[in-house]
Design a protein around this nucleic acid. Structure first.
Length: 605
RNA sequence: GGUCUAGUAGCUCAGUUGGAUAGAGCAACAGCCUUCUAAGCUGUGGGUCACAGGUUCGAAUCCUGUCUAGAUCACCA
């Protein structure tokens, strides 16, 4: 708490803004509001630290750009103790902030282990985030990986930004698709199990789903050859009728069917848990659709009573959204059963009531944009004041060179296969470099796994969630350049230095403010300075990509510094102390920012 | 057809309240390890920011139109 207070006091932008407001009062007798002020970090290629864009202020100064800029600059030199100098380029006023300020700032944050994080307390907002939400008839693929990593990372980022986060998973464990797997297993499974076939449970069940589809298509073809129209054939293939019968039995609670359903689902869960574990993601609460699919029905009936919804002649109930430029949406079938939308209305209502949520985020692919648009609109029409607090974190598809991944056509990148491949690549790469010789097999495997997941997670999370992204299975995910392992490597090198320092009994202490520091070091401090605002932006925009870019940038800057300057062999003791502190803090922030992406940092690699 | 999203270097991507000469990585080429871990660092080449207008001191960014790609418009979830 104290640290954050100090930090606020140390906020250089606020400080400059205050001076600027005073400046306009004193020089031009004008009150300017903070909104009209545009301070920004000075671009690399120019001298200076922070830039004031003077153009928008000309209407207050009523003087030429040259004159105004110079007057403001001079005012800062004599009235702002952190401003050491300035230069003017084309109406951009570049202030040079004193080195002492940056050193003081670094010294200030050294003891703060949670620098950049906002604390939560009992008054913090509750935010629920639903992600993953798999079907229990298909193994996880790369698209799910993106969903899972995004959901987890966004949760961590929002937590770091001072909110209570409740991570939930809504498992889609019921419906006709599950019955298809069940039926296929019953018919052709010969009582085999994942154990007896030595298969991962979700893969095992997934195979029967595929088998159903294959046999079903055969039947349809057969029927068509008997001159039955395609539509009819598809609807009346015996297998499909059997599956539908099974669903009815399940809904009526038929003991045998429910038992089979439970058995097969438990296999799938076991498989999913393995994959979740490998991905390093978790949930605070798991919902099952089999328990929630009837929710929302009452709400719909109430809506009908209040004439918000409409009933058609056949008895089905709809929301009419045509006045909002959308279509009509079915909410209850004429037999009284509910649909996907009905359930989502119900679960949202339940969750907002139960948890006093200030926001509910759904991490779901952009193919469902329409669904969530409709959901929100219906909730609004039903007069729920929290309707505006649901947010669809819509992310883009992962595309392969030949197009979108399609489970049924087998053009998917399997999650487990990909992870295993990555670990193998990490192992080969590491063995080539031979830096882990002498480690135990366990230690090595742990590191391979950390590097592999670092590469995979960074690869996915560095891309803006909103955008579709491309994955080419023929080009393996890189371990060099703008990658997770690059950032991990930077961390490892710092840790190596810190170990050496300890061996030589060099301990860090308060930094001497008067030392001269190089531009590279100053640049690193400035980047550290940006960490809190980066977390804030990432949370606001639900974008782990901002954190990923930040971490990469920090690591890159440190590597440049590392290359050019010796740390432990420097003669000046004050400089050693400064560089050691700088390195230590950089390592901490690298670790912290990677943690927000769910990426671990090994101590050696 | 309606709606929504996107189009930036050969490839994968940054570029977020409009700001300076549009940046990285990969790939290619040329350098740097007896010195804190070379999964690193330095350099070279590579761009009509899809196209055309508009708004203004200033546009990759905002607006309009066109082209291209994807998603969606289910009594599936």
């Amino acid at each position: 708490m104290q640290n954050s207070k100090k930090h606020i006091k140390m906020n250089i932008f606020d400080n400059l803004k205050t001076t600027l407001i005073n400046c306009f009062n004193d020089l031009y007798n004008k009150d300017i509001t903070t909104e009209t002020i545009s301070f920004q970090y000075t671009r690399e290629e120019f001298k200076g630290d922070i830039t004031l864009v003077v153009f928008p202020l000309l209407r207050f100064t009523k003087k030429s750009i040259q004159e105004s800029t110079k007057e403001i600059g001079d005012y800062f030199i004599s009235n702002n103790k952190y401003t050491n100098g300035y230069n003017i380029i084309k109406g951009f006023l570049n202030f040079e902030i004193s080195t002492t300020y940056w050193i003081k700032f670094l010294d200030n944050i050294l003891p703060n282990k949670n620098f950049g994080y906002k604390q939560t307390n009992k008054d913090s907002d509750n935010i629920m985030i639903e992600y993953s939400s798999p079907n229990t008839n298909k193994p996880l693929h790369l698209g799910h990986i993106r969903n899972n990593l995004l959901g987890f990372s966004v949760s961590e980022i929002i937590k770091a930004n001072g909110k209570n986060v409740i991570k939930v998973n809504l498992v889609n464990d019921r419906g006709i698709h599950i019955c298809k797997s069940m039926l296929a297993w019953q018919k052709w499974g010969k009582n085999s199990t994942p154990e007896s076939t030595n298969k991962k449970g979700d893969k095992f069940v997934g195979d029967y789903y595929v088998l159903f589809d294959k046999e079903y298509k055969k039947q349809v073809k057969e029927l068509i050859s008997q001159k039955i129209p395609e539509n009819e054939a598809k609807k009346n293939a015996p297998l499909l009728l059997e599956a539908q019968e099974m669903l009815r039995k399940w809904e009526n609670g038929d003991t045998q069917t429910v038992e089979l359903w439970q058995k097969m689902n438990s296999w799938v869960y076991k498989g999913f848990d393995q994959t979740y574990k490998k991905l390093g993601i978790d949930f605070d609460k798991i919902y099952y659709e089999s328990q929630t699919y009837k929710l929302g029905k009452q709400i719909v009936l109430d809506g009908l009573k209040k004439n918000i919804l409409i009933k058609k002649d056949d008895g089905s109930i709809w929301a009419d959204l045509t006045n909002d430029g959308l279509d009509q949406k079915l909410l209850l079938r004429n037999d009284g059963t509910s649909v996907y939308m009905t359930q989502d209305i119900g679960t949202a209502h339940q969750r907002f009531n139960e948890y006093n949520l200030s926001k509910h985020i759904y991490v779901v692919g952009n193919e469902q944009n329409y669904h969530f648009q409709v959901l929100k609109l219906i909730l609004k029409k039903l007069n729920y004041n929290w309707a505006d607090n649901i947010f669809h974190l819509s992310y883009g598809m992962v595309e392969l060179p030949e197009g979108k991944m399609k489970s049924r056509e087998g053009t998917v990148v399997d999650a487990d296969d990909l992870i295993d491949e990555m670990i193998y690549t990490a192992k080969i790469k590491s063995q080539e470099l031979g830096k882990l010789d002498g480690f135990s097999e366990n230690e090595k495997n742990k590191i391979y796994q950390q590097l592999a997941m670092g590469a995979l997670k960074y690869f996915i999370l560095k891309v803006d969630p909103k955008r579709n992204m491309m994955f080419n299975p023929n080009e393996s995910i890189d371990f060099n350049g703008n990658t997770g392992p690059f950032i991990q490597y930077s961390y490892v090198r710092i840790k190596s230095i810190l170990r050496k320092a300890k061996q030589n009994n060099i301990s860090t202490k308060t930094i001497n403010e008067k030392i001269k520091i190089c531009e590279k070091a100053k640049k690193i401090i400035k980047t550290l300075y940006k960490y809190p605002e980066t977390i804030n932006e990432a949370a606001k925009n639900y974008s782990p990509a901002l954190i990923a870019n930040y971490a990469y940038n920090l690591a890159k800057e440190y590597n440049q510094f590392y290359q050019e300057y010796q740390i432990l062999k420097e003669k000046n003791k004050d400089l050693i102390n400064f560089r050691l502190n700088l390195s230590k803090k950089t390592a901490e922030i690298i670790k912290s920012s990677l943690a927000l992406l769910g990426i671990e940092t090994p101590e050696r690699m």
